[in-house]
Design a protein around this nucleic acid. Structure first.
Lengths: 218, 218
DNA sequence: GCAACCAAGATTGTTCAGCAAGTCTACTGA
DNA sequence: TCAGTAGACTTGCTGAACAATCTTGGTTGC
């Protein structure tokens, strides 16, 4: 088995760091990002900065139209609805197929859920990372690189939302753990339809709380 | 209602034309595409050619790694399986939701299917375009821009496959029309599970024939 | 006071020339 | 025959430049 490594280019590194800045809230939604800004900040040529910006535009973390300067996207209620409906569509069918095929529950999903519980026990409410890890590992379990990639794109937008609401109260970790567990049980029992139904409720509740938090933001 | 138009940049135009070249089979799978090639072919600067190439790499129509020259992707059986499984996951759940919500069948879907029948009656076997139009219009009917965008990406890869097999015998238009019709009936009757099942068979047959055609290609 | 207008500055789109670094190829010498 | 290598080719990135477009803030006319 050959391991292929990709030497990261300067554009890669800058794009990654910009992504980190946006997701950490360091770059506020709506704030503008000039090519010269980026070029100056990282001390690179403008062409390099441009490429990095264009990459983030392609993954819809920044937005811009011709001759306008890029801005950090601000996701509204309609976006959240769209994102969560897309998630539900993808993940519901994934659960059905995992259940129908009798695919064993991936260890990563159980571990992610256990991590949420640990943080909850440690009185932490910041469970976004393990929560997304739970969902992505379920999707990964069907073994479709394209489906996984699509879901990853949605997950990235969810994290962008989280950056906007900055730790406002969302779904309680206790509820999350319980609902995840219920989903795992149903999938394991081969009850795909029921699992999909629970997932729909789970995502629906998360979506509504997120929209509320968004309304009260800024 | 304001209509926003986007002035296309040179990079846009070149990327579009390259895409057309790849999908038309003018650029064979596996053939390499140098930045200087593209720059020369369209008489633009290398930076511009580079941007266009990178855009097609991002939508996985070309592939390349650092310091290597870009090549037109050649999709193998494993890719086809991956693409069709992703399609099935997305579209099956879409059908379930359309059926459950009682969403009326989009006119575009009926029209696309009628077009397939017309071409079949005119003894034409080239029904890829209206076929994809049928499927995308069903996905569009759920009204999720992100889901539609994801499906469009998959559809693009399907067209890329078609370019590779260059009009080899695939699913018969007569079969396609009949199965599409059956799907519409079931969705209309609110029978989501059954519609999803028929779709699975439909896509499965198309996938197998495509893989066969791919084996006999080049 | 306010709206339309205009000019200056800022920003993007694109080009050109060039260098460093990595990749590929075809030849050489063992 | 084949490993090694020199040279050609290609990509990554830079810096400077210019046109086209956008933005801003002041000015003019009402």
């Amino acid at each position: 088995m050959v391991i292929r490594v990709q030497v990261p280019s300067v554009v890669d590194v800058i794009a990654n760091d910009l992504r980190r800045s946006v997701l950490s809230g360091e770059l506020r939604p709506g704030s503008s990002l000039t090519e010269a800004d980026v070029a100056g900040r990282y001390d690179v040529a403008r062409a390099t900065a441009k490429a990095a910006i264009e990459r983030l535009v392609a993954e819809s973390m920044l937005e811009r139209s011709t001759h306008k300067t890029a801005r950090v996207v601000r996701l509204g209620p309609q976006d959240v609805r769209d994102i969560y409906l897309s998630r539900a569509i993808l993940e519901a069918e994934v659960l059905r197929r995992l259940a129908a095929a009798g695919t064993p529950i991936p260890e990563a999903a159980r571990e992610a859920n256990a991590e949420i519980r640990r943080r909850w026990n440690a009185s932490s409410f910041d469970v976004v990372e393990p929560d997304m890890r739970f969902h992505t590992s379920m999707v990964d379990a069907v073994g479709t690189v394209r489906t996984s990639r699509m879901y990853r794109g949605l997950a990235s937008e969810v994290r962008l939302c989280m950056a906007q609401v900055q730790g406002r109260q969302l779904l309680s970790p206790a509820v999350i753990v319980a609902e995840h567990e219920r989903i795992l049980e149903l999938v394991e029992a081969g009850a795909g339809n029921e699992a999909a139904e629970v997932l729909d409720g789970h995502l629906g509740r998360a979506r509504d709380l997120l929209i509320d938090a968004l309304d009260n933001a800024d």
